[in-house]
C-alpha cells in the first residue's frame, strides 16, 4: 500500500520537502508505524517532532484533511494522505 505524507510548518522545515510517498506491506498501516518510518528516514524529524516513539505534543496528524489524531491510534489504507503539522493555530 502507498501513503502520501504531507508536511506543514515545523515538520516541513525539518524534513525539507513538502510531501513524499511511503510504501508499506499489507492493506492497513497504523499511524504510529508511519511516523516511525518517517522518523527513521529523517533524523531531524525524530529530534524535533518526536518524543521517543510518539509524535510530540506540539505536533498533530490529520488523515486526508478530515480526522485529526493525537493518540496515533488511527489506521491508514492505500491511497490515503497523512498530514503532519504543528499543533497551534492562531495569529
Amino acid at each position: 500500500m502507498k501513503i502520501k505524507i504531507e508536511y506543514f510548518g515545523i515538520p516541513r522545515q525539518r524534513v525539507g520537502v513538502a510531501s513524499e510517498s511511503y510504501e508499506f506491506d499489507g492493506e492497513e498501516t497504523g499511524i504510529h508505524d508511519i511516523l516511525r518510518a518517517v522518523a527513521d528516514k529523517h533524523p531531524a524529524f525524530q529530534q524535533h517532532c518526536m518524543d521517543g516513539e510518539t509524535i510530540n505534543k506540539h505536533m498533530v496528524v490529520n488523515l486526508n484533511g478530515n480526522q485529526f489524531f493525537q493518540s496515533q491510534d488511527g489506521v491508514t489504507r492505500d491511497g490515503d494522505a497523512l498530514l503532519i503539522l504543528s499543533m497551534d493555530a492562531g495569529g
Binding site: H58, D88, A89, G91
Partner: peptide
Amino acid sequence: GPATEKYRELGTAANLLVFNRLN
C-alpha cells in the same frame, strides 16, 4: 522550546498552507 518553534521560525503565517490544505 517546541511549543513556540513555529512562531519563531515561520511566524503566524505558517498557518497559510495548513489552512489551505484543510479548506
